[in-house]
């Protein structure tokens, strides 16, 4: 292993520890205590919250904004694929990947990187989004999109791109727990709380209109 691989492993350790701190803080703070009489089924609502409630046909943020929603989905697919590859690269040299697998990953990551870039450009160009954004929003997007791009380069060029790849990943891992990328944890907690709230009151799962 090279020094930059050790560096990325160290950053991964810091990232995991920091994320665990966020996670255990939520656990320590505990679940909401609702003393009113429950009306619905919280478990079913939680399941709904993580599944059907997230479907594009159930959210205006999806069906009224198909391009942004689709870009977001691709960006996340690319991110999860890049994370998976980051782990795999410690055990398998990208040079020995079968060609079809390399190019499949490259195509997916190319799409996700373009999606990330388009969202970044949108954030810069749209007055509405610029108003809402802070420096963190741009850094988070940039680091994530670059993550996809360096993964592509590492898949194709392997050793020549290795140092850039691992340094970028290290920066991303260090930044993740302090910037908005930490929504990787809070997203799941938010869905939990939403499921609890709507489930307790029998709003979710949705009732039939008739």
């Amino acid at each position: 292993m090279y020094w930059y691989q050790y560096l990325s492993l160290g950053c991964l350790g810091i990232c995991v520890l920091a994320c665990l701190w966020h996670f255990f803080r939520l656990i320590r703070l505990g679940k909401p205590k609702d003393l009113s009489r429950k009306s619905g089924n919280v478990t079913r609502a939680e399941i709904y919250s993580y599944t059907l409630a997230m479907m594009p046909n159930n959210k205006e943020s999806a069906y009224l904004h198909i391009p942004a929603f689709t870009s977001g989905i691709f960006l996340h697919i690319g991110t999860f694929l890049s994370i998976a590859l980051f782990v795999v690269f410690f055990f398998v040299d990208p040079k020995i990947f079968p060609e079809w697998l390399t190019w499949t990953c490259v195509v997916i990551l190319l799409v996700s990187a373009i999606s990330g870039l388009s969202l970044l450009i949108k954030r810069m160009v749209s007055g509405k989004l610029r108003d809402l954004s802070n420096v963190d929003d741009f850094i988070s997007n940039l680091l994530t999109t670059l993550f996809h791009i360096v993964t592509i380069f590492y898949l194709i060029f392997a050793y020549q791109a290795a140092i850039y790849y691992y340094i970028e990943v290290s920066l991303l891992l260090l930044y993740l727990p302090v910037g908005k990328l930490r929504h990787v944890i809070y997203f799941f907690a938010a869905r939990y709380h939403l499921g609890f709230f709507y489930g307790w009151r029998n709003t979710w799962p949705p009732q039939k209109m008739d």
């Binding site: 939520l26 656990i27 703070l29 505990g30 909401p32 904004h65 929003d137 929504h183 938010a190």
Partner: peptide, 30 residues
């Protein structure tokens, strides 16, 4: 409890909520 901390940390500033709000829909003020 964890609810406040969760919701204060979860927003990603996508801005897609604008169209769901009647204030934004009627007045188009960011």
């Amino acid at each position: 409890d964890s609810k406040l901390v969760t919701h204060l940390n979860a927003c990603v500033h996508c801005g897609l909520c604008g169209e769901s709000c009647m204030y934004y829909k009627t007045m188009r003020d960011n």
